[in-house]
């Protein structure tokens, strides 16, 4: 069974996206990056990102990640902010009672986008 199936597939992503986005919007170390965005569109992007982190279907390339975050890098997006997002993902999955070994796998996938997201 794939990681995506083990975590619970699309139903798990749907459950996770509201919890994750609430955490992000309440996290004062990163929520200023989301102050002026359309919440509904942003939630759809969060869903796509979580789907990828959960090992699910996506076709994002490193180049997409670079382009999609370049305007945020210009506003100071750095490792500390990426770390905060990683913590919010782990906390979301913990809240959903996902086993620790699966959380670690999802975190590794999310972590693999760090350099592209931060434009390094």
């Amino acid at each position: 069974m794939s990681l995506y199936e083990e975590i619970g597939g699309e139903a798990a992503v749907n459950a996770a996206v509201d919890i994750f986005y609430r955490k992000v919007l309440r996290d004062t170390s990163i929520n200023h990056f989301f102050a002026d965005v359309d919440m509904v569109r942003q939630a759809a992007k969060q869903k796509a990102f979580l789907t990828m982190a959960f090992g699910g279907p996506h076709s994002y390339t490193g180049e997409d990640m670079r382009k999609g975050h370049a305007h945020l890098v210009a506003r100071g997006l750095n490792d500390s902010h990426f770390d905060a997002v990683m913590e919010n993902i782990a906390a979301t999955l913990t809240e959903l009672n996902v086993p620790a070994n699966l959380i670690a796998q999802a975190a590794a996938i999310a972590e693999s986008t760090r350099n592209d997201v931060l434009g390094k």
């Binding site: 699309e10 992503v13 749907n14 569109r41 759809a44 992007k45 869903k47 796509a48 789907t51 699910g56 279907p57 996506h58 076709s59 994002y60 997409d64």
Partner: peptide
């Protein structure tokens, strides 16, 4: 954008015809 059914950037509207269930999921 994501081309995997998540981000909804590619939303379109059917004027006529039958839509597969997968195309409206979520």
């Amino acid at each position: 954008s994501c081309r995997a059914g998540s981000c909804q950037t590619c939303l379109m509207c059917a004027v006529s015809g039958t839509l597969p269930e997968l195309s409206q999921r979520g």
